[in-house]
Amino acid sequence: MLEVEGLHAHYGRAHILQGVTLAARQGEVVALLGRNGAGKSTTMKSIMGMVRPSQGQVRFEGRDLAGREPFEIARAGIGYVPEERRIFTELTVMENLDVGRRPPRPGQQAWTEERVFALFPSLGAMRARPGGRMSGGEQQMLTIGRTLMGNPRLILLDEPSEGLAPVIIERMADAILALKRDGLTVLLSEQNLHFARLVSDRACVLEKGQIRWEGTLEALMADEAVKQQYLVA
């Protein structure tokens, strides 16, 4: 469904991505792991077109999207949930969701406000509340809901557990598993290995702008050498 091949990206003169290659199949949850600065967020932003890749391909459902504008990529069916959440603080919950709304594909069951509230019941109790007056956990739910309103077939989740209390992280994991059951494909960037293990099918380990290891989460947990080299040590 998503195939990223030889993706390079620069920030100013820093060469952040140095040929990232990864793939996600329909309905799969793939975790992108790695230290801070390894290039996880940049990979997501490059797929989304928010950082212009200097080289490489991003194929989604057969179309090459590299170099396209973010809005075109969003319309092609990729949703992006940023690490900083970026809720519209002056807009209410309902209005935030409305901004995200895009028509579904023929045959796709469309996301509605009610469906978002079924996934995150606590949002349903604060429909008219401005985004700026919500807690970190609620904002995280709203930013995911807002992206879902665009009826994406793949979502990029950038560190959804960052800065959240453990109990909220557990709820986040449940929600991701529910989305996976609905057939959504998820590319997740994460630092919290425990969380990644709860939700993902496969992991790609990123280091210095390249994928260094790929495999199932079970294999990763068992491979002390890889964990030491790229994640823990």
Partner: peptide, 14 residues
């Protein structure tokens, strides 16, 4: 109004 707060995010929402 959303774009007033964060234009880039609005773009990422299509």
């Amino acid at each position: 109004r959303a774009a007033t707060a964060d234009r880039e995010m609005v773009g990422a929402l299509g």
